[in-house]
Amino acid sequence: MRITRTAKLAAGLAATLAIFTATLPSTAASTDPVAVAAQPVAGSSSNVRIEGSRTILGDAPATIGSTELEQRSGLAELTPVRFPEATSAVVVGYTSGTPDGSSAEVDVRAWVKDRWSEWTSAGAGTPTALPGASDQVQLRIILTAPPTGANPWVGDVTVQPTDKADPSRMTVQAAPLQSRVFATREGLVGGTTANGHVIISRDHFVALPSRRGLAGNGSGTYSVKVCTASRCAFEPVWDVGPWNTKDDYWNPSATREMWKDLPQGRPEAQAAYQNGYNGGKDQFGRTVANPAGIDLADGVFWDALAMPDNGFVDVTYLWTGDGGRGTVAITSGYLNVRNSPNSSGAVVGMAGKAAQVTVECQTTGSSVTGSQGTSNVWLRVHSGMYVAKAYISAGTFGVC
């Protein structure tokens, strides 16, 4: 089940987006503006068009399943903006129009500890704390509307450092959160995900019920490890759902978008279904029919995890903490995860295109030729599970 879908990438995205204004902080109070030209990141925008300084929702129809919320939506990730000095907070400025039940949102994230932090909604003119001091931020525009009619927009976007936000409201965990949640199969081949990816047969991605952890189309910036008792999959987060769209349950309770009285790791849909939380309904007032906290594309559900039916799985949200990482460097399909460092080892899982994988250590095994050259190095990504480093963009790790 999936809540929202974006339509296919609209033509003409080569047009220039809004100009960002970055304040260069030689001191915390400096107000010297510098204009920074910004373009949409290639492949990371969907169903938007540009008119002057405005980014406007396109007219492509919603792609939905029979039980899903019917919405049109568009997304535009903008080129990162770099400041000459690190800042712990920013002020994002923009104008917006939201006619006829539509919505417009601008999100921000920061480059912290050599990786992108999670997306956070930024109110216009309001200081937004970053999860750590950073000299590089990126903005994202999210537009949603009913199936016909309204075309919300965002324009005149600016961003500048500030020292007026309390960074303690956001936290960085020492280790990624792992929780046991109910998984359902997404399916919907031919549909379009919330980041503009068109779903193919036996696809490899997952959906989570908040855009805070939504990766760009073709990116594995936000990836999960999903495990059953005997198999694991490493997959990028390319869609939003099930049930809710503002349930970032992997975050500490105090920083969740909604449902701040629920414990970290417990999806709202699970609490609603099992305990009657929120009257047994989701954020849209619909009666929750199952406790799902993650959707799995067909290739993840059937092939990587060999699941015969919907059920509980162990999910690790890899961007929520530190640890060794590598990125699956393949152009399509998936990479087999094997039970030994050998290309003849039994397949015990899969890793999707662009997904991040956890790396515990490295060892030697059979020689493999892949996108990263020829190598006999294998990476242990889970207890008793290995992938060939010849297909993983990663550094060097300790010996197993």
Rank of each mutant, 00 (worst) to 15 (best):
G149P: 01
W238M: 06
S88R: 09
A289M: 11
A110K: 00
V90Y: 01
S371P: 05
S340I: 07
K164W: 10
Q264V: 13
A329R: 07
G276N: 14
K164S: 15
T67I: 13
F20Y: 13
T228K: 10
E268G: 10
Y273E: 08
F205S: 02
R140G: 01
R202L: 11
S375A: 13
V359L: 12
A289S: 15
V347Y: 06
Q264E: 15
P161R: 06
G191N: 07
Q274R: 14
V198N: 08
W250I: 03
D239S: 12
A174I: 01
I200A: 13
W378Q: 06
V90E: 02
T79L: 12
T331K: 14
K353Q: 15
Y222H: 14
Q178R: 13
G187W: 04
N310Y: 04
G155L: 02
A145S: 10
P99D: 08
Y334T: 07
I56S: 00
P99I: 02
K246C: 08
S134A: 13
R115T: 02
W378P: 05
A297D: 12
V300T: 15
W319Y: 09
L208F: 07
A390Q: 04
A229D: 15
P40Q: 12
S219L: 10
R256S: 05
N251K: 09
H204Y: 15
V198F: 06
W116P: 01
D282M: 07
S73D: 06
S223Y: 04
G155D: 03
A11Q: 14
P80T: 11
E186H: 08
W116A: 01
W319I: 04
T67M: 13
S66R: 10
Q71R: 12
S46F: 06
Y317M: 09
